[in-house]
C-alpha cells in the first residue's frame, strides 16, 4: 500500500512535467520572438517597402496578408455559413447528408501543400488567374472552408430549439425563422469560428507561396490579378535565403508581427466566445 502511494507521487511529478511542456514551449517561442523582434518594430519597418532583398520594411507584406485573408474570407465565409445552415437546419438524415459530411471532413484533411499544388494547376494555369492575389486568396479559401462550415454549423446548432418553435408558431416561414432569429442568435458564435479560420489562413505559407507570389514584392497589387506579398512567405524567403544579420533581423520582425496579428485575432475570438456564453447563461439562469 505504501508502495502504491510512493508510485502515485512519482507518476504525478512525471505527469506535471509533461503537462507543463506545451506551456513552456509556447512561452519560449513567444518570448524569444518578442525579444528578438521588438527592436525591429519601428514606424519605418512597418510602413516602408522592402528593397534589395534584405533591406527596407514590410508594409506591402502586412497589407498583402490582410488582402489575401480578405479574399479568402469573402469566399469561405458566406459559403461556409450557408453550408452550415444547410447541415444544421435542412439536411435530412440520409446518405446524401453523410456524403456531404464525408467530403467536408476530407477537404479538412487535405495537406496544405496539396491545396497549393491544386491551386497552381487549377487556378493559376488552367483558369489563367496567374500567380495573384485572387488565386492565393481563393486557394486559402479552399483550405479554410471546412473550418467555416463546421464552426457555423456548431454555432447554429447551439441556438436553443425554443427560438425556432416560437418563430414558427407565429407563422414565420422556415427561412424567415433562420434569417431573423436563428442566424442572429448564432452570429457571435459564427464570427468566433470565422475568426479562428482567419487565424489559420493568416499564417499559412505553402499555399500562398505556390499561388500568390514570392513574398518579397515591394508594391501592393493594383488589381486582384497581380502577385501579392505576404508575411509568411516573406518570413520563409528571408529566413532561408538571407544569411546576413540584416536579413535575420527582418525575419524576427516579420515573425513578431505575424505572431502579433495571430494573437490579436485569437484573443478577440475568445473574448467574443466568452461574451456569447455569458449572454446565453443569463437567458437560462
Amino acid at each position: 500500500m505504501v508502495n502504491e502511494q510512493v508510485k502515485e507521487k512519482y507518476v504525478k511529478i512525471f505527469l506535471y512535467f509533461t503537462a507543463s511542456f506545451s506551456i513552456l514551449v509556447l512561452i519560449a517561442i513567444m518570448f524569444f520572438i518578442a525579444i528578438k523582434g521588438m527592436g525591429m518594430l519601428t514606424v519605418e519597418f512597418l510602413t516602408t517597402a522592402p528593397y534589395r532583398f534584405e533591406y527596407g520594411g514590410i508594409y506591402p507584406q502586412i497589407i498583402g496578408t490582410l488582402y489575401l485573408t480578405g479574399v479568402c474570407m469573402v469566399f469561405a465565409g458566406p459559403i461556409g455559413i450557408l453550408a452550415g445552415i444547410y447541415l444544421s437546419e435542412y439536411a435530412p438524415v440520409n446518405i446524401i447528408t453523410k456524403i456531404l459530411r464525408f467530403f467536408v471532413e476530407s477537404l479538412a484533411g487535405v495537406p496544405s501543400i496539396v491545396i497549393g499544388l491544386f491551386g497552381l494547376a487549377f487556378l493559376v494555369y488552367y483558369m489563367h488567374f496567374q500567380i495573384s492575389l485572387f488565386s492565393g486568396g481563393l486557394a486559402l479559401g479552399f483550405m479554410i472552408l471546412p473550418w467555416t462550415v463546421r464552426a457555423s454549423e456548431e454555432a447554429i446548432r447551439a441556438v436553443p430549439f425554443s427560438y425556432r418553435e416560437a418563430s414558427l408558431a407565429l407563422g414565420a416561414s422556415k427561412w424567415q425563422t433562420i434569417k431573423e432569429v436563428v442566424a442572429k442568435a448564432a452570429a457571435p458564435g459564427i464570427v468566433t469560428g470565422l475568426l479562428l479560420g482567419l487565424g489559420k489562413a493568416i499564417g499559412e505559407t505553402a499555399v500562398v507561396l505556390l499561388t500568390a507570389g514570392s513574398g518579397l514584392e515591394s508594391f501592393l497589387p493594383r488589381s486582384i490579378f497581380e502577385p501579392v506579398a505576404s508575411l509568411p512567405v516573406y518570413l520563409y524567403m528571408i529566413a532561408t535565403q538571407g544569411h546576413t544579420s540584416e536579413a535575420y533581423n527582418r525575419a524576427y520582425g516579420a515573425a513578431l508581427v505575424l505572431l502579433g496579428i495571430f494573437l490579436v485575432i485569437n484573443v478577440f475570438a475568445s473574448l467574443l466566445r466568452n461574451y456569447y456564453i455569458k449572454k446565453h447563461r443569463v437567458r437560462f439562469g
Partner: peptide, 19 residues
C-alpha cells in the same frame, strides 16, 4: 495553451526551430 499551440503559424514555429 495547447489550443494556442495548434494555431501558431507553422512558419513561425519552423523559424524558431531554425534559429
Amino acid at each position: 495553451s495547447v489550443e494556442m499551440l495548434v494555431g501558431i503559424p507553422s512558419i513561425v514555429l519552423g523559424f524558431f526551430g531554425l534559429v
